[in-house]
C-alpha cells in the first residue's frame, strides 16, 4: 500500500497552477474581440457624444444579454441583416427589452461585417 506520494502530488498541483497562469497570461495579452466604442477608431470616428453613449450602452447590453445562454459571438460573424435576424429571434428567449434590442442592433450595425454585396468577391 502506498500511503503518500508527495512528489507526484506536488507536480500535479503545479500543473494546475501553471494552467491557471497560462489562461491569465494569454488572456491579458489579447485585445477584446468585441470592439470597444473608441471615438478615435474608424467605425466610431466623427459620431456625436450622445450617439457614442448609445453605442456604448449597446455594447454593454450585447455582452450582458448574449453571453449567458451561449458564448458571445464575434460581431464580424455577419452583416447587419444577419444580426437583425438573430437578435429578433433571440430577444424573447433572453428577455431583451425593446430599447435594449435597438441599442444592440445599433452597436452591431456599426461593428459588424460589411454587407455581402459590398464584400470584395474573389
Amino acid at each position: 500500500m502506498l500511503r503518500y506520494a508527495p512528489r507526484r502530488s506536488h507536480e500535479i498541483r503545479l500543473a494546475f497552477a501553471a494552467l491557471a497562469g497560462c489562461i491569465g497570461a494569454i488572456a491579458t495579452s489579447c485585445i477584446s474581440p468585441i470592439p470597444a466604442v473608441d471615438p478615435q477608431s474608424p467605425p466610431f470616428h466623427g459620431r456625436s457624444q450622445p450617439e457614442l453613449q448609445e453605442l456604448e450602452l449597446g455594447r454593454s447590453h450585447y455582452i450582458a444579454k448574449c453571453s449567458g445562454c451561449h458564448s458571445l459571438y464575434l460581431p464580424s460573424r455577419g452583416d447587419a441583416v444577419y444580426w437583425r435576424g438573430w437578435v429578433d429571434k433571440m430577444a424573447e428567449r433572453a428577455a431583451i427589452a425593446p430599447e435594449e434590442r435597438q441599442r444592440i442592433l445599433s452597436y452591431l450595425g456599426v461593428v459588424c461585417a460589411p454587407p455581402v454585396a459590398a464584400r470584395v468577391q474573389p
Binding site: G68, C69, H70, S71, A94, A95, I96
Partner: peptide, 23 residues
Amino acid sequence: ARARADERVFTYSYEPKVLPKDA
C-alpha cells in the same frame, strides 16, 4: 414555459457565464 437553458461545454468546470436578467 419561458425557460431557456444555457449551454455548458464542461460538466465539472463552470465557465464565467450567468443568465441575462429575467431569463
